[in-house]
Design a protein around this nucleic acid. Sequence first.
DNA 1: CCCAAGTCCTGGTTGC
DNA 2: TGCAACCAGGACTTGG
Length: 274
Amino acid sequence: MPELPEVETVRRQLEEVIPGWTITSVPLAEPSMLRGLGVRDFERRLSGNSFSLPRRHGKFLLLPLSGGFWLTVHLGMTGRILVPTGPRSRDPHDRFVLALTRDGCRAWFVFRDVRKFGRVELSAGTPAPRVAGLGPDGWTGVWDSGYLARRLAGRRAAVKALLLDQHILAGVGNIYADEALFEAQILPFRPAGSLGPEELERLAAAVRATLERGVRALGCSISDFAHVDGRLGSMQQELRAYQRQGQRCERCGGTLERTIIAGRGTAYCPGCQV
DNA sequence: CCCAAGTCCTGGTTGC
DNA sequence: TGCAACCAGGACTTGG
């Protein structure tokens, strides 16, 4: 699942390969993947523009173009980006493809997505409007335990559900939510407003540390996630809670359990998360 | 059949 | 009582 560390890994790789390439056409664009505009509008507006340095906010990839346009990309659950040079390898799950040129060479920007949860949005002047409504970036953003205290105060929903709320903090998904709560030793179904100052401090530190670990491991390669060059991340080998129900807790030796929060499978240790 | 899950949407509930 | 904020759950999607 592409969450913040996975998207950051893709951003860093795109930074190395796409600046300077100019879009010549849009050979493939499934309408269901596009937001706002139709396929024709995409092609008309994108053609002739070139890529510059890619940015990221939370799980959104923000690709500024020379003409003042922005491509805002969300990888959804199984999205991948490939930038092959020369002939492109086709796949039935390719949803959005840009033909590129630079110094007489050809390349492609390929958005491949088995499940159709990914989206591509084209906007002028600024990234897609939804990005402005997101909370601070969980990894690079300016926020602390005081911010969490303000946003969680009085809320009765499970703390994990609010960690998944991109309007509060952008970038945390199901994997890193379970990992951060395990690290902070906080039960995921605790009402968010019930967390005390020390717990919020631990949670803030755990969220940052977990995302940081994910970025250093080049992401978590579960469910189709791979890098632009096809290689895999290694965070899946470091997981201590996510999907480990029934297994032994590395911290207290107890057995991890599973429940459902916000419709998502949730693994936690009843022994040392309180 | 259930499970995986990111975002959006809906309808019901809560509390001021 | 009115209203906005809040909250839970469903829809979407395909493969294991």
